[in-house]
Design a binder for these strands. Structure first.
Lengths: 215, 215
DNA sequence: GTCTATATGTAGATAGAC
DNA sequence: GTCTATCTACATATAGAC
């Protein structure tokens, strides 16, 4: 039985809820699911412990919400970019991968600490099969959309190989985001070049996989 | 002050210690550091809780030992393969990457559940900056050795790009190991082909990165 | 919606007998 | 080295006043 929706939440409630999600994002990202405590999240959000349960609905549900919130925004940006290059008729493997990779990396580098923390959070989700359902819900639809676009470019390629290439590309992107020794040493203009190289790595890898003798 | 070494440990003690490390490996791999409990590890190893502390020396130290144990064996196998192809004069980018990737994947697929669990364990270590020191100690020396070999093949390439390529390759390899939807569907002969494709992805990606305009 | 207080379980670690 | 028993701390979750 679902909770009945009685009334729109107050502005104060919405702001508290956002503060809790922000705090949860930071703490979950830094220490993982089990390492994070509701108390730390409450303290960072400057609310009482009980309020975190009230808004979050338990620790697992809070974790789920934290991952899902930015995933929706990210998916929207990525799909918009994809449709933009399709309308412009500039579809290419590198262009498609760029639409997938660049928004995430750019936001992590210049979009404030939130997106940087989110990168680590996603790394935790990806590293642990336990969160497979969350990953499937939040990330698979967009990933499938991108794989379909690549498949349209290479109609003869084995779809499984394209999917594998996508998985490897996501892994490389997360490694890029979460390997601090690089991002910190970046001079202002270097960021874009780094992204270009990452896209090049993924694109060349995928091309090589599908050029190899088909299964 | 270090503990003084008085006598060789008994066979019984060594076997208990191995059982504890095996159990710790399985539980840490499945639930991560914080999610694992000493009690679960003790229960799986069929020993008392106090014994886990006695042999492991605290939870963090136990985690460290668990990661380090197989890392040493893996490093040895990888380096041996590397020296074998060097003596045979068959050094190539794909050959080097193959020496790095194949032993790990092969062990995970056919070396028993231990190595499969170890793959997940390493994924946890890699995903969390908190374990940077363990990763540096256990994995960096071997990684550096392989980067040096690749650098010798491409003396004009930017060493930083080679290091970046290595990081991406490791990420792709871990993704391959820990993405169950593939391994389970493998027919006996398919495993080798999958490894070839992974090596091809990484090699082509690295080649493309260093072929790009040097910084 | 928010806060105080508390219920209940389990964590890591250790002391001391054998 | 091994096992029993226990210490202390902190976890999640909730009940109930306001």
């Amino acid at each position: 039985m679902e909770k009945k929706r009685t009334r729109a939440p107050s502005a104060r409630s919405l702001e508290t809820r956002a503060r809790i999600l922000d705090a949860a994002e930071a703490v979950f990202a830094e220490r993982g699911f089990e390492g994070a405590s509701i108390r730390d999240i409450a303290s960072l959000a400057k609310v009482q412990v009980g309020l975190v349960h009230h808004h979050g609905g338990g620790k697992e549900e809070l974790f789920h919400q934290t991952v899902a919130r930015r995933a929706e925004e990210l998916a929207r940006i990525r799909i918009e970019g994809l449709e933009r290059i399709k309308e412009a008729g500039e579809v290419s493997l590198r262009g498609i991968l760029d639409c997938f990779i660049r928004p995430y990396v750019t936001l992590a580098q210049s979009g404030g600490a939130h997106w940087l923390a989110y990168g680590r959070l996603v790394a935790h989700v990806s590293a642990d099969p336990r969160w497979g359902r969350i990953a499937a819900e939040c990330f698979d639809p967009t990933a499938r959309r991108f794989i379909a676009e690549i498949a349209a470019l290479y109609p003869d390629a084995d779809p499984q190989r394209l999917a594998t290439g996508q998985v490897y590309s996501v892994a490389a992107m997360l490694a890029f985001l979460n390997t601090g020794w690089r991002v910190e040493a970046l001079s202002p203009g270097a960021g874009a070049a780094e992204i270009d190289l990452l896209v090049e790595f993924c694109a060349a890898g995928i091309e090589a996989m599908i050029a190899d003798s088909p299964a």
